[in-house]
Computed example of a mutant assay.
Amino acid sequence: MSTLTERPGQARGTRPAEAAPGYRPGHTLPLRVELVRQLKRRRTLVMGAILAVLPFVLLVAFAIGGEPDGPADRITLMDTATASGANFAAVSLFVSAGFLLVIPVALFCGDTVASEAGWSSLRYLLAAPVPRARLLASKLVVGLGLSLAAMVLLPLVALAVGTVAYGWGPLAIPTGGSLAPGTAAGRLVVVVAYIFVSQLVTAALAFWLSTKTDAPLGAVGGAVGLTIVGNVLDAVTALGGWRDFLPAHWQFAWADAVQPRPEWSGMIQGTAISVTYALVLFALAFRGFSRKDVVS
């Protein structure tokens, strides 16, 4: 029994074109194929190299500058960077979460569709035929997967580098006390998971822009730029309670997880805000692309 499919842009009231024998929309553009394509791209390799090199840059900076030196009246997380490998990994996340980790998320999610349009290959993918929702879903899953891999790569390399340089030991907490190595490792997993969730807004924004433009730089730069604007607005204390609705306001709520008694309220609020914005933007991306006249 043949399957009937409706091609994008088909006139209403006409009989859908009959699909070729054996055609199954759900088997087009497999995730494995899309993942291999993205892994082979130069920007993926360059971004992975940058994140892997960052811990070594920090290690050299501490070696040249000596022990971290903060205000005399209080101890910060940065002051404990050389206490153990776990502390070094936590500091690496702290210095990169605000901006550096935004870039791979915006790059992997914002470049994915726009680059196909820029290469004039998007229309050929749809003519294969790959259903539009299937194409977007494959690219989104791979983009998010690469973003998560980038966030996991940084602390893993930092933990290894820090352990070799400063030893394997408990995570020293600036406010006093410490976490056992096993407990610290579990808390760092929670931290990475929360950072990933908090970056879903940037991912969704970049993905939505990627479906709107043929210029990858526009989608990536737009997402990074608007993320920076959110950080600037969060610094405006005159906004008062309105800042609670900004995803940037909760981006460092993960610091509550590296305490003797973790506090989850901030991370729960941050997760709710981030997921809500992301779902709306993802929905706009799928809705807009399903109606878009693709000519590239």
Rank of each mutant, 00 (worst) to 15 (best):
S2Y: 08
T3V: 13
G9E: 08
A11T: 10
G13V: 07
R15M: 09
E18Q: 15
R24Y: 06
P25K: 11
G26E: 13
G26M: 01
G26N: 04
P30M: 13
R32K: 14
L35R: 11
V36E: 13
R42K: 14
R43M: 07
M47P: 02
A52W: 00
A52V: 02
A52N: 10
P55M: 07
A63D: 14
P68T: 08
D69K: 15
D73L: 11
I75E: 12
L77N: 06
T80Y: 07
S84P: 10
A89R: 01
A89D: 00
A90N: 14
V91F: 08
S92V: 04
L93V: 01
L93T: 01
V95N: 01
V95C: 01
F99P: 00
A106Y: 10
V113E: 11
S120T: 12
L125W: 14
L125S: 11
A127Q: 13
R132P: 00
L135N: 00
L135Q: 00
L136A: 09
S138P: 00
K139N: 15
V141W: 09
G143C: 03
A150C: 00
A158W: 00
L159M: 12
V161L: 04
T163G: 09
V164E: 01
V164T: 11
G167E: 02
P170S: 15
I173C: 05
T175R: 14
S178P: 03
T183L: 13
T183S: 12
R187V: 01
R187Q: 03
L188A: 02
V192A: 03
V192Q: 04
V192E: 06
I195M: 05
S198F: 05
S198V: 00
L200D: 02
L200I: 02
V201W: 11
V201E: 10
F207I: 12
S210M: 04
S210N: 05
T211I: 06
T211A: 14
K212C: 09
K212Y: 00
A215Y: 06
A215I: 07
P216E: 05
G221C: 12
A223H: 02
L226H: 09
L226E: 08
N231V: 02
V232M: 15
V232Y: 14
V236K: 10
L239I: 06
L239N: 04
H249A: 14
A253Y: 02
V258K: 09
Q259R: 15
Q259N: 11
P260W: 07
R261K: 11
E263I: 05
W264N: 06
W264M: 10
S265Y: 03
M267I: 15
G270M: 10
T271S: 15
V275E: 11
V275D: 12
T276L: 13
A278H: 09
L279Y: 02
V280A: 15
V280C: 13
V280F: 15
L281N: 10
A283W: 12
L284E: 02
F286D: 07
G288N: 14
K292C: 03
D293T: 06
V294A: 13
V295C: 05
V295Y: 08
V295G: 06
